[in-house]
């Protein structure tokens, strides 16, 4: 697995998509910090960008790359190595390349302009999102034979988790506003990895105070050790379940 990882990563270090991602994040992050006088305001804007852009890029990149290396995967699959080693190496390399690009594009400006715990939480949450959406992207590519359809499904998944999920949640809160539903909103929001990442950063910036009763509930739950553990477990589940399903699909996949 380590050999597949090593050579796939070597290929990815010169991949234009990965380099472009690093550059794009660097330009956005640096631009926001330069435009805003208050670095915390820049951080807030950056949170919104990260929560929308990171899942999209991780998903689309993973899906496209998995299709692009299909013939090469076939070549590896006729060597005396197990398929789990091939997929494991490729997934690790893709995740590592994206994380490296993000460390340069997002981590570096955060470290230079706002070295704080909030920046650290944003970096960690962003990294978590990379892993979650890379795993989802790989699963889509492994389950769907056609590239165009795979990319289409990836975009639908992104739309569902970034926009539709929140829209439905807000509609529910509005429709049942006469009832004390906010305690139920916390776990439902927490099930979406993007919302979960956003909540963790918001709590650290203390923006939860401006969110009224919901913010207080978030703080009570996710601010505790138990809440942090639950958040990490949910994030981990979002990585483990698609990855495990991907390995199952790849074991007997016709190449």
């Amino acid at each position: 697995m380590l050999k597949v990882f090593k050579y796939t990563l070597l290929d990815l270090t010169r991949n234009r998509f990965v380099l472009g991602y690093a550059l794009l994040m660097l330009v956005i992050a640096q631009g926001l910090f330069m435009l805003e006088d208050d670095p915390f305001k820049a951080l807030l804007s950056l949170v919104q960008v990260v929560m929308a852009l990171v899942p999209l890029i991780a998903l689309v990149f993973t899906v496209v790359y998995m299709y692009d290396i299909q013939e090469f995967t076939q070549l590896l699959a006729v060597q005396p190595i197990a398929r789990r080693a091939i997929l494991g190496g490729q997934l690790l390399a893709m995740a590592a390349a994206l994380l490296l690009a993000q460390a340069v594009g997002l981590g570096l400006p955060l470290l230079v302009h706002l070295p704080s715990k909030a920046s650290f939480i944003l970096s960690v949450s962003g990294s978590g999102l990379v892993l979650v959406f890379a795993a989802l992207g790989a699963l889509i590519a492994l389950r769907q034979r056609e590239k165009a359809r795979g990319v289409g499904i990836a975009l639908v998944v992104w739309l569902l988790l970034v926009i539709v999920y929140d829209a439905l949640l807000m509609w529910g809160m509005f429709a049942f506003s006469d009832y004390p539903i906010e305690p139920f909103v916390v776990p439902v929001a927490g099930l979406n990895p993007i919302d979960l990442a956003r909540i963790m950063v918001m709590l650290e910036i203390d923006l939860a105070a401006m969110m009224g009763y919901s913010g207080a509930i978030y703080r009570n739950f996710f601010g505790s050790t138990m809440g942090m553990v639950a958040a990490a477990a949910i994030m981990l589940m979002w990585v483990v379940v698609p990855t495990w399903s991907g390995f199952r699909a790849f074991r007997r996949k016709d190449l």
């Binding site: 010169r14 013939e71 006729v78 005396p80 197990a82 398929r83």
Partner: peptide, 22 residues
């Protein structure tokens, strides 16, 4: 699924050759 070791002495040349681009 058979153990991958059986492919140790098999050489395969596919119809379409695509390799890591970079």
């Amino acid at each position: 699924v058979p153990h991958p070791g059986y492919r140790e002495r098999i050489g395969y040349m596919p119809q379409i050759s695509q390799f890591p681009a970079s």
